[in-house]
Design a protein around this nucleic acid. Sequence first.
DNA 1: CCTGTCTGCCCC
DNA 2: ATTCTGC
DNA 3: GCAGAATGGGCAGACAGG
Length: 648
Amino acid sequence: MSVKFSKIAKLLSDIEKISSRLEMIDLLREFFSEADLIDIQIISYLIEGRIAPKFVPIEFNYSEKSLINGLKIWIEANEIDFDIDYILEKSGDIGDVVEELLSDKKIFMNDSRDKSLRGLSLEKVYSEFWQIASYDGKDSVQRKTDKIISLFKYSNPLESKYISRIISGKLRLGLNVKTLLDAVAALLGEGKESKYYVDKAYGFCGDAGYIVKIVREGIDEIGISNDEKLLSSLINILEEVKPVPGIPIFPELVNRVSTFDDAIERMLKESDRFITQPKFDGMRAQIHIGVDYKSDNFKERVWSSFYSNYVDGKDSNESLDMFSSIDSIKGNSKGVKIFSRNLEDITDMYPELVSSAIAFGVDSAIFDSEIVGFINGKFIPFQDTMTRRRKYGVDYQSEEIPVKAFLFDVLYLDGKDLTEDNLIGRIELLESLSSDKKGDFIISDSHRINDTEKLESVFNDSVEKGLEGVIVKLINSKYLPGKRSYDWIKLKKSIDKKLVDTVDLVLLGYYLGSGSRAKFGIGALLGGVYDAESDTFIPVTKIGTGITDDEWGMIMKRVSSSETDLRPKSIADGSYDVPDKWLFPDIVITVEADEISKSKVYTAGSDKLGYGLALRFPRLKVFDRDKDATDATSVEELVDMWEMRKGE
DNA sequence: CCTGTCTGCCCC
DNA sequence: ATTCTGC
DNA sequence: GCAGAATGGGCAGACAGG
């Protein structure tokens, strides 16, 4: 019997009130030890605002704005006295808005109710979620709204709050899947050992529900009383979860440091040498070769997973066939699959890489790589590379924007898991695969070095080639799926102050904040440059980071005296996001950015260039420069900065 | 058919 | 992506 | 140092509405 959803809402509400992760883990562990297996599996997906693992292509496609629009229409049709915008501004959370709206008990009085929904269970809510996510085509937005409102009818305000938050993907509990895995590990005892194996198994399968399932089944079989046997048996079970071609592995992630010396110090603490590889400005891609669609391992993890039962009118073997049947794979004779950083299947977007993989001359492999547009021996801008991430017109675009896959790691080769091997061994193996059949694969350059001078020269080479910088890696490190540790450190060219773009922008408006920013009444700023010719200010970017909570309070005070409801005439109009509050342009701020980019919503520079300019990765450095707005960075200066970078 | 709006554990 | 915050 | 949650520009795709 699936647990009542009202109990789940209470659990989530309790977790939300806690700030200590250890206490959250304790609450969850308790729930995990009592609840039915199916409920635990469902929760493990819902906690991420999803209904299935990431590699299953099912999304709600219905976020905060859709719910707000839908509710507004519904409120008006039912003549309810409720100001959504006002409450949203105050709370900054769609869930809180819904909770408050439904606290009025009279709202659903005259509705005829569907009895099958009474006393919602978690399982029932989950299957309704599947239907909401499955609606598509004409009027699907309206059908989703109707279904959500019908769920509200059978929920108390607290349940409605979490239904809204799950669907809009912003649970805001201060807890996510990593903490959930900690709670799973806690089922096996206090020690850190269990956590290591749980994390690792999750890294290899990308499916928290599956991990929960095998752990819980193991516990039920052995019995929780037998501590020692429990731990060792469960470790054995978790260790069975190994890399399998066709099942995406969470890519290992990089950390950042602020100086070369910091990076070197961390590396040399562990070993007398370290590895550097180029940092490409493209798209992370994990390339699998030799997917065996009929193997038990593959079926167990993908085809028979419990969520496939929820797909309407299909049995589990027909459903969720992201891997599709082997017969339908056109020209993909070797079971090639390519996955993005977030485990999305992007195979069909890169036919030339599928061909390269088939020709590569290995039976099975999993490579870690970066896909970058590459024309006449030169790297092309990130924005152009990203046009290859598409569903339609793939053939045309692959001629317009040809790409290369730069392989920089190998996690699996000809049936063997390499993730426990040292990095240096994996790289040597990768380099040994070099042959004349690489197609659009390029084995990434790796340097083995041990001092600052060499690091700086490798870094400069990299930047000169048009790359983003270098990644520095511990020479003797294992591959850690999904981990962001200091085993891998990025040194971006923006570490060098000469290579960042710093501008003085005029504050033109601001936006309301969500979640924890709501209490400040401000969440982001709109900044612009000065155009002397027309004596106007032209927006170039929003800024939402680089500001501490204390500063937000101060900024709000400073800004309130310049507020105005209508756009001041001196601020250029455009298709940019209109701020919630306009400001008379009299405050100058300093903003740092990694680079200037071509824009379709910002227009600064378009008179001269034919296209507008914006900032990539903007962050606030100084709030109030105490100078005149007309002394801010000018359009001409911005255009100059853009042309100088381009010329290099 | 065209255009605007919204979405994406999007990509970075 | 960058940045800040609580533990 | 980790995990989580704020926030950025910009891309293609899906849908609503005229």
